[in-house]
Design a protein around this nucleic acid. Structure first.
Lengths: 146, 146
DNA sequence: TTTAACTAGTTGTTTAACTAACTATATGCC
DNA sequence: GGCATATAGTTAGTTAAACAACTAGTTAAA
């Protein structure tokens, strides 16, 4: 039994994620203005390493919802920027464990602050309880499809 | 005065748009399974042409929330697929008006059905009133940042 | 009228997503 | 042990996004 909550005219925004695109663009612009030479995708990898350093590329795939080739290239580029280092695991030599450089650790506070600021700008005039509902709906959508 | 509704652990999903990514991937998979040789980005351009045929590339930029180079390339690829045609405007010779081919018109019903089906799968077990709130929040976010 | 400023679209470059095909290591079964 | 299978990661090719620099046509003002 389909819900059919979406009339045709409303369908587009939801599928193409205009809101999250707008957030990501604003955040990227703020990074650039702050002189941070960092893409949002690179930042999203660092984000998970700040939570737990030294995880494998496969774990980064799961955490960031990206496939293996994407993580390979992102880690390549982060290595070029000297922000992370691959260390092959001694327990399982197939695995690369990805470690933050000291320089990358320094980026955490500043970039998280900018990210929070961006979200606050995005959510101006949205009541807190509606934000909560929105987060819950998006979580269910993700769980339904992942 | 910042809202600070987002704890660090919740911030990531909202910025990277995991839910809309999941929707787009599911829709792309359904297109592929249906034998439709069409990317979601290409479909999103056709989507607006189905609403109004013969609009300019600039109008497609506004409608799809993409920049001009992106639309140039998408229209390039849609032309290669013989789904649209550029016709330079007689009133303003700088403008290309983009027209659907008969073949593209045939795609509308089938792809819109698949898109609606995808959204219904995404929204299983989400109450209608919460979907409405979520749509409103995302619209405000978009308006706040665009 | 011609010059400046603006608008529509294109091209080049870098980064990233997705698929498929690949290498190397690990695991499990006979 | 040896073979099949699974897992971790890489490489190649196509499509797309973001940005800067560009061409060409239009508008407006000196």
């Amino acid at each position: 039994m389909p819900n059919n909550h979406f009339k045709r005219g409303e369908l587009y925004s939801f599928i193409t994620g205009k809101a999250s695109t707008a957030i990501a663009r604003r955040l990227q612009k703020k990074f650039n203005n702050a002189g941070l030479n960092l893409t949002i995708e690179q930042w999203s990898v660092l984000y998970h390493l700040w939570k737990q350093d030294g995880i494998s590329q496969q774990e980064l795939c799961n955490a960031t919802f990206r496939d293996k080739p994407s993580i390979t290239r992102l880690v390549d580029n982060l290595e070029k920027l000297k922000l992370v280092k691959r260390v092959s695991s001694k327990e399982d030599r197939r695995m690369n464990l990805v470690y933050l450089s000291p320089e990358a650790k320094k980026l955490q506070d500043r970039t998280m602050e900018i990210a929070e600021e961006t979200l606050n700008e995005a959510l101006i005039s949205v009541p807190a309880d509606q934000i909560d509902i929105c987060k819950q709906v998006l979580q269910i959508v993700y769980d339904n499809l992942k």
